[in-house]
Design a protein around this nucleic acid. Sequence first.
DNA 1: TCCTTAGTATACCGATTGGTATACAAATCG
DNA 2: CGATTTGTATACCAATCGGTATACTAAGGA
Lengths: 188, 188
Amino acid sequence: MDNRAKILSSALKLFATRGYDAVGTQEIVDAAGITKPTLYHYFGSKEGLLTALLETHFESLYQAVREAATYQHDLPLTLNRVVLAYFNFADKHRLYYRLQLSMWFAPVDSIPFKAVAEINQKQQQLLEDLFLQAANDHGNMKGRHRMYAATFLGMINTYVSLSLNGYASMDDELVYKAVHQFMHGIFS
Amino acid sequence: MDNRAKILSSALKLFATRGYDAVGTQEIVDAAGITKPTLYHYFGSKEGLLTALLETHFESLYQAVREAATYQHDLPLTLNRVVLAYFNFADKHRLYYRLQLSMWFAPVDSIPFKAVAEINQKQQQLLEDLFLQAANDHGNMKGRHRMYAATFLGMINTYVSLSLNGYASMDDELVYKAVHQFMHGIFS
DNA sequence: TCCTTAGTATACCGATTGGTATACAAATCG
DNA sequence: CGATTTGTATACCAATCGGTATACTAAGGA
């Protein structure tokens, strides 16, 4: 692992568990076993480090969700795939997903929120497109694709958060439960 | 408005928009028009100020939700009341709800998370009790009260967040939509 | 009136903040 | 080989961090 990777790894661990603003650059470089000029050589600023962290990890989540979210006239199947994609990713990159989750509702004028805004928007867009297409096959869904996208992602993040904190496990059963509840509610 | 109230007000605005760790005590006292010893006289520490902020505002949310969540063998009605209670509160105390929301998924080892943990637990407990009682009338809900509570609160917070950012408005229609989706899913 | 208490300001504390000027070493390239 | 680029450390910067010692004022009770 080269120094750049060491810095990313240390920063991920610290940001995800204590928060961006609560962790100083000195602590990061100490944990990485290097010094500050090296950090600033690779990332330019503390904010640049955070951005690089998101760019490094988000791309693979984005690709996975994008593939899962291609609509083929079977909404239940597609939603299952999307939830599965999120669960697989979050389970494989637990620390990173913790970080992304902690930035999801960050204060609007904070650095973390600005850094994560594009990521949130890209996820929202993928899901909006999906529900927009699905509305062609399910007339009663028309005009609600934005709400569906937001609440679906909200539900996924709720389940992931429960799992990351040990109150559930991201297995096939939870995927089924999540999708079923989203589609049919709690009464069936 | 006395000095204590001035400090609480300034701190709320700053914490909610920029985040607890990103705002220094000096900035808070400057905004309040007083000096540091006054802040430490009333709150003891920066963390104590945050705690006082939560205690000051959460109680009225808790009372409102507790009344709304008393089950009388009509789950749809009760859920409507709960969502309405949240919307009314969040709309009346927008800044505070932004703060509470930003701390909801805060990193586990951060001060904000520890400060908000009890609040999260109390809300979860209210909703768990509700779904536990409801499960007596709806057999197919049995054993899922924890999940229902978590996802219901997750959905409420998703809707509130959308509204606080201007993508929806917390009116009766949104209450109906939220409850309907939670109970019957998206297909009806 | 005297004493105590609450509240507030001035001025300061050591530690840490994000960030950098300088120098040097290793690798790369012509 | 010599020159240039990349990477890294030492040592430092002004500014800010959370917090406080001291002194003062105003108010209330005995």
